[in-house]
C-alpha cells in the first residue's frame, strides 16, 4: 500500500462526466471530501447538484471519470452497488417514505433485510433514533399522517438506521413549508456535531454558511469555486459565483 489512510479522502470524484441523452449535466466534476467533513454544494438550478449526489449513491451510472470511496473506484460497471449503498445514506427532496408502512417499519426494513438484524434489535435501534429526533410518539403512524418536516426527519432516521459512513442530502428542505425547514436543519446540525461525513445540496445559503466545512459552487457541471464558507460567501473570486450570490442576495435568501 503506497498510500496511508490519511492520504486517501473519504470520497473523491475525478473528472466525472454524466449526460442524459444529449444533455451533459456533469462535465468533468472533481471533488474531495475528507472524513468528518461537511461539504455543501450550491449553484443555480440545473448545475448538477442533485445529479452528482445520485451518482455518488450509484443510482445513476456515470459516463466517464471515477468515484472513489476510501480509495476504491465504486463507479466501475459491475461494482456491487448495494455494498456502497449500505455505507452511504441519501435523503431525497421529496422524502420518498414507503406509504404502505408505518414509520418504524420504514426505518427497520433495510436493517432487517439487508443487514440481517432481528426485528427486536432493529426496532430498538429505530426507537432510539426516533427518540433522539423527537419522533418517538410517531413510530406507529403512517407517513401520510405526518407533516412534511416530520416525514423528512423520518427519512433521515431511515437512512441513519443503516449506520452509514457518509450521508448525502439532496435539497432536503426544498419541498417544505418555511416554518418546517428549521426542524430538519436542526437534525442535520446534530449529525455534524456527531462527526458524520456529509455532502449537501441546498438552497439555504445561511445554513450552508453555518454548517459547512467547505462550500463548492457548481456551475455548468463542474466545481467552479471551492473554499471555506467565508471565502465563498464573503470574498468569492470567480465572476459566476459573485453573480449567483448577488442574485440570491437580491431574492432575500442570503
Amino acid at each position: 500500500m503506497a498510500q496511508t489512510q490519511a492520504d486517501v479522502p473519504k470520497l473523491r470524484l475525478t473528472e466525472v462526466h454524466k449526460a442524459f441523452g444529449d444533455n451533459s449535466v456533469l462535465r468533468g466534476m472533481s471533488l474531495d471530501v475528507d472524513e468528518h467533513e461537511v461539504v455543501t454544494l450550491i449553484g443555480p438550478s440545473g448545475c448538477g447538484k442533485s445529479t452528482v449526489l445520485r451518482c455518488i449513491n450509484l443510482l445513476e451510472p456515470i459516463d466517464s471519470g471515477a468515484i472513489l470511496f476510501d480509495g476504491d473506484d465504486v463507479s466501475w460497471p459491475g461494482y456491487d452497488a448495494n455494498a456502497v449503498r449500505r455505507r452511504v445514506g441519501i435523503v431525497f427532496q421529496s422524502f420518498n417514505l414507503f406509504p404502505h408502512m408505518s414509520v418504524v417499519d420504514n426505518i427497520t426494513l433495510a436493517p432487517r433485510k439487508v443487514l440481517g438484524r432481528s426485528r427486536d434489535v432493529a426496532t430498538e435501534q429505530a426507537m432510539q433514533l426516533l427518540t433522539r429526533f423527537g419522533l418517538a410518539e410517531k413510530a406507529d403512524d403512517f407517513p401520510d399522517r405526518l407533516s412534511g418536516g416530520q416525514q423528512q426527519r423520518v427519512a433521515i432516521v431511515r437512512a441513519l438506521a443503516m449506520d452509514p459512513e457518509m450521508m448525502l442530502f439532496d435539497e432536503v428542505t426544498s419541498a417544505l413549508d418555511p416554518e418546517l425547514v428549521a426542524e430538519v436543519l436542526e437534525v442535520i446540525r446534530g449529525l455534524k456535531d456527531a462527526g458524520l461525513t456529509m455532502v449537501l445540496a441546498t438552497h439555504e445559503m445561511t445554513f450552508a454558511r453555518e454548517i459547512s466545512t467547505r462550500v463548492a459552487f457548481l456551475d455548468d457541471g463542474v466545481v467552479a469555486e471551492l473554499g471555506t464558507p467565508e471565502q465563498i460567501f464573503d470574498a468569492p473570486q470567480v465572476p459566476r459565483t459573485q453573480q449567483f450570490l448577488a442574485r440570491v442576495g437580491r431574492a432575500g435568501r442570503l
Binding site: 443510482l59 452497488a81 449503498r85 441519501i90 420518498n96 417514505l97 426494513l109 433495510a110 437512512a159
Partner: peptide, 9 residues
C-alpha cells in the same frame, strides 16, 4: 430509488 438507496436489491 429509495429502496435501492437503502441497499435493498
Amino acid at each position: 430509488a429509495a429502496a435501492r438507496s437503502l441497499g435493498l436489491n
